[in-house]
Design a binder for these strands. Sequence first.
DNA 1: CCATATTTGTCAAATGTTTGTCAAAGACAT
DNA 2: ATGTCTTTGACAAACATTTGACAAATATGG
Lengths: 211, 211
Amino acid sequence: MTSSNKPALPVIRRLPKYYRYLINMQQAGEKNVSSSELSRMMGTTASQVRQDFNCFGGFGQQGIGYKVDTLVTEIRHLLFGDGQPLPTILVGAGRLGTAVSQFLVRDANGYSLLAAFDNNPELVGKTLGGIPIRHVDELRSFCSQYHPQVAVLCLPREGATQLSSTLVEMGVKGFWNFSHYDLSVDYPQVMVENVHLGDSLMSLGYHMRNL
Amino acid sequence: MTSSNKPALPVIRRLPKYYRYLINMQQAGEKNVSSSELSRMMGTTASQVRQDFNCFGGFGQQGIGYKVDTLVTEIRHLLFGDGQPLPTILVGAGRLGTAVSQFLVRDANGYSLLAAFDNNPELVGKTLGGIPIRHVDELRSFCSQYHPQVAVLCLPREGATQLSSTLVEMGVKGFWNFSHYDLSVDYPQVMVENVHLGDSLMSLGYHMRNL
DNA sequence: CCATATTTGTCAAATGTTTGTCAAAGACAT
DNA sequence: ATGTCTTTGACAAACATTTGACAAATATGG
């Protein structure tokens, strides 16, 4: 039990990666892990691993290392809180939306998908792996009844900005944005995670052509 | 025409974003743009914009600013080279693979999707927006005939690591990796862009629960 | 033609992040 | 018990990135 500084952004972005590796170790039955061992797996330095864990109040033991179970529990708590899943909606049920919703339901933890919305009449009424697709016109009434916390945006850039205002107004606190648009809401206490597949691909292109 | 340093990684990751904004400006018919104007759109400082462009040999003019067309041309050249699209294959034609291939074909530039591969016999023989799905057993022979440069990986983590070795062996120079696995090949001159949707989602969760 | 306003390119200062180092703590073998 | 080995936590040094400041260049208006 030591001092804990406020964690920097890069540290937080590394947490999911730690978590993935630690879950694997746990499933492999490993009990303890040292910072150097973890650093080798993660492709970083032991120093960084120790400093990262220290941000959250170092939970290691000199001479032994870290208990895998402790780390998993602590990091899970940081990432998922008390385990209560965040009520979530999907806006845009096209191909990308379908794939993302599958991912959310099958592979992700900490979120529960309540409903999907689209403005295409052909999609409305169908289901998405058990989740009904509604018309976007129902969005407001749905929100005032079920109070979703998170919205996953998989729609064309045109609609995104105005829709996000509405959703913030209706109490949405976090956006996972796949639309081709840099979403940034002006309200504090509202988080946005932009996923730009196009940017990612362009970066790859740059590196391939310039190295 | 001024001195140009080797660009740092953060600069390169900003290029696609500049590009997006500049394309919009171009379509809106704007001729010139100042660093301060761009910085306001991008949510950064004018200083950073100027310094970023300078890495590639500043192409602005004092008193006026930057020509939008020049910037677009220069950045496009950095990102897409001479415009020759990179021959690309998709491995894993499930839901995610389908969505990603759609994105690649419809919304992305600089890549041409030659073929898709899967080990599910039910998918083999079908097409993916005009692209035929083949069995992974044909991968080697396909590569030796068509020499794809880029592989998009949308398969479960189990297969990914071994498959990537094979692909590197067959001459693939870049990976766009969606599999639940930190791909890192040990060969220099091979680039990997890992897209971890799960990590992105966990980051969002952290910020929502700890702020 | 000159004064003023704008804007870049450059450099240095400030800030943020990572890495190296070492004392202190615990485990383990003898 | 004692000495040796391992490993953490803490701190400082090294490194990287961003920001601020200003001279030089160009445009504009009188």
